[in-house]
Design a protein around this nucleic acid. Sequence first.
DNA 1: ATTTAAATATGATATTTGTCATGATTTACT
DNA 2: AGTAAATCATGACAAATATCATATTTAAAT
Lengths: 225, 225
Amino acid sequence: MSKCEQCIIKQFNSLKALTKDELVRISGCKTSRKIKKGEVIFEEGEVLNGVYCVRDGICKLTKLSANGKDQIVKMVVKGDLLGQRSVVSEERSNLQATALNDMEVCFIPKSEILADLHKNPDFTFDVLKDMAKDLREADDVIVNMAQKSVRQRLAETIIYIHNSFGTNPDGTLSVLLSREDFANIVGTATESAIRVLSQFKKEGLISAVGKQIKIEDIEALKRVE
Amino acid sequence: MSKCEQCIIKQFNSLKALTKDELVRISGCKTSRKIKKGEVIFEEGEVLNGVYCVRDGICKLTKLSANGKDQIVKMVVKGDLLGQRSVVSEERSNLQATALNDMEVCFIPKSEILADLHKNPDFTFDVLKDMAKDLREADDVIVNMAQKSVRQRLAETIIYIHNSFGTNPDGTLSVLLSREDFANIVGTATESAIRVLSQFKKEGLISAVGKQIKIEDIEALKRVE
DNA sequence: ATTTAAATATGATATTTGTCATGATTTACT
DNA sequence: AGTAAATCATGACAAATATCATATTTAAAT
């Protein structure tokens, strides 16, 4: 099994603030795990006994709403940590995590994380900074949800996925999402998401073959009202 | 001027994790300030040079959306801290803070807060815990915005204000919000908020004389669909 | 106290979004 | 390969919400 000290992934998250010794210790008790596309990593309401460091792949964080629909609250990629919020606040998870790709993650037990949080202020501060960023992003999502149309939100979602998760050589978005996933990000009915995507296609803003979506006119997409 | 070490307010926020010495030091460089109802404490995009500890009163945190409407993202009360997110991430404020009451706040310079964040892991951990709570609440707001009707959101807002900010002796909500404020919490047009409040009144769920709103049937309000 | 401005209220109507139905296409499975 | 089950697509209609217009009431200012 590879060692945390040498892992390049940690450069992208708060683990980089740990000392060599701390990393060696964590490396000794972490477990590596492969997760298949569609698999649930943890459920809403589950007690998380640790934090996941995402080495590869992408997952969605969802919350089931009263009307029985999943809302995608955030997407987590390679390099991100998963489950810090629950571990820090010692609460059950408020979200479900589901793999959108095949994934590879390392699981670090809660006790190790908490030990370092209490001992290493740099690490704690880094986790804090990360959470501050998450919080700002969440504020932005709230405002978008409250004030923008489904059309605008969907356009922005496509741009966001394009910019954050990249594209294949042919220009198509590298993360494959179902129309239902798009609806659950945007907070609309699946049919509405489908309809708006069809409109974007007709208007030449995107092209789509099945789940393969490609931005054709990003400037026009940005201008969508 | 009163001293932080003796201030009871700090029991309600992360400052309680500071040592006596740290509190004395902070006490020496804090400034107390009174803010009148309606006054802006800081604006969106402003550089915050410190954190506010709310000793009395309530304020709203808003973000201006592209369509020119303010969205109320969170409300902050006596006992809460204000501005931690921006200070931690060393970014300009992503929100505007406006007093809804006459307020009394203590301003603590950024340098002091950051010094303690780097030295006192208990304090940092406490701030982290607080932010984790804010983040969970923000996730909940996202889901509500995305999946619930204006009617439901408004009903829940009234209950939230009732439970979190309390009532006057006659049972009316102690925080006076304009109909526009309600609209900006719920993310709807002012006219829609007014209309729904009128409906609630007709249905006997609330009574309202001007801005004075009183819950008449909280169970029915909880059941609103 | 009177005037002026702002906030509240309500109707009429347009627009957006959701729901239900139904068919086509794609994917998964044996 | 062939079948079943998802997923995608689109129409028709219903419901929710926004917008515009215009009173009415309330608060603020002189």
